[in-house]
Amino acid sequence: MGSSMDTNRLSESDEKFVAELQDCAKLLIESLQNDRFEDASKLIRTLYASRDRHIFQSVGRLTRALHDAIVNFNVDVNLYPEASSSEIRDASDRLQYVIRMTQDAANRTMDRVETAAPIAANLGQEAHALKAEWEKLRRRELNKDDFARLYKRLNEFLEQMGEGTDVLNQNLQAIILEQGFQDLTGQLLKKVIGLITDVEKELVNLVRIAGQVEEVTGITPLERTAKVREPHSAEGPQIHAHADVVKGQDEVDDLLSSLGF
């Protein structure tokens, strides 16, 4: 990466600058001890010039490094501030797509369940009813007409059973297929994670460059202010276990009961 090379060159030039200062200082002391004041003031002018040159060069390099870092953010600087073709913009689109995809998959899965559930419920109901009739038959409590009705009803049930289980199987298979969204969204999320990692690297780089700017120009950094967080703003699902996060419904219940719930 361009900016890290610049950093090495910067320290080299720092060393050169320090060496120049030391040489000049030695000569200056010599000149002063030997009462050569004209030489001494010449040396002081050289010192000034060398310091100015060093600052100019450093700032130039830092500007270059800053530019590189911004380019590495993959933001099209010409389009700034819209940045409509940046990878960040692209990542937002990907994430929106993940939301849409998971929503569609959840809805289609629930559609399937809503289709299947009444079929299973009807078959179950009919099976229970037939079982009761069947028990009567075994206890020889059915007359000829009852038996004829049971005979017909059993036949209908077996037909319903065949058709119903076919539909149930189709829906169950479809639900399995719907789970493919996990793979697809996972791939999109991985790409976004990759981008975030890159952006983090570039940000760290920028922070380092900014630190060098402060050093070269003699700007004292402002006192670092602690990040102020809104108290208890919503955060969404907790991914890592922390002490201040409950591990499940049981802990929620314990906490609430300790509060008198």
Binding site: H232, E235, D244, V252
Partner: peptide, 19 residues
């Protein structure tokens, strides 16, 4: 999905009936 203890306490103090 909010699962911080502080948040549950906050909800309880605000008068939630279940969480």
């Amino acid at each position: 999905a909010e699962a911080k203890r502080d948040q549950i306490i906050e909800a309880a103090q605000a008068g939630v009936n279940g969480y």
